[in-house]
Design a protein around this nucleic acid. Structure first.
Lengths: 110, 110
DNA sequence: AATATTGTTTGTAATTTTGCGAACAATTAA
DNA sequence: TTAATTGTTCGCAAAATTACAAACAATATT
């Protein structure tokens, strides 16, 4: 029993998923993905939540590696982290491609 | 201010991501994606956690729509939910495709 | 030096998540 | 009927998440 070991890829996928597990953070990613870059204020301006909360969400996205931020005094510029974005894309599509229903009739009697 | 409204798609994407935000649940999805279907016991046997916890993780995956379960007394058969799996795949790839770095030089001075 | 601007950090509270053992339900076998 | 098998649900505890206001830091301006 207990033979299944969780791989690094699976841990990493879960980590990315966790970063994406909140609607506000999805909205932030969407916003950044479209603009390629922008300042904290631009993001905060558009969200109906306190700046402290925005900052926290940005922190989590940054720690997960999906975005990056650089200080441009007195502002902070945020953008997608291209390398990790590509890795996340691959991990997710790899996961979803693992399921290939060979038969047209569904499983589980559904 | 606060102009950004979170769309249903974004809510749904976050919901799927949340279901995938735990390593054990990623492992379960991976397991199911490969086998196309299997019983609770098969999953529990392979995981180093209590059956109550396994049951809970399966519940969350089921409530999120990623998997489905049917009772086959005295067992319960679980499998990927094909329709929602396809929807999740699209939502994620749609999100990741939103970012298209036009230039080779990275943003944020990275 | 004093003030304004831009974000982060801190402290706090409410809620959710995670995990387990024990109790429970439902079917099957003896 | 009694016992065994298979999972779910309950009750609980520890930890993590979410959100906010207030305090703080760092640069720019007057």
């Amino acid at each position: 029993m207990a033979k299944l070991e969780i791989s690094d890829c699976q841990e990493r996928l879960a980590r990315f998923a966790k970063a994406m597990s909140h609607p506000t953070r999805i909205a932030i990613l969407h916003f950044l993905a479209q603009r390629n870059e922008c300042f904290f204020g631009d993001i905060h301006e558009v969200l109906p939540i306190a700046k402290a909360t925005v900052s926290q969400h940005l922190s989590e996205l940054k720690e997960a590696g999906l975005i990056q931020g650089t200080i441009e005094p007195p502002k902070v510029k945020y953008c997608i982290n291209p390398e990790n974005w590509a890795i996340a894309r691959q991990l997710f599509s790899g996961m979803f491609d693992e399921y290939r229903p060979e038969k047209k009739d569904s499983c589980c009697g559904g």
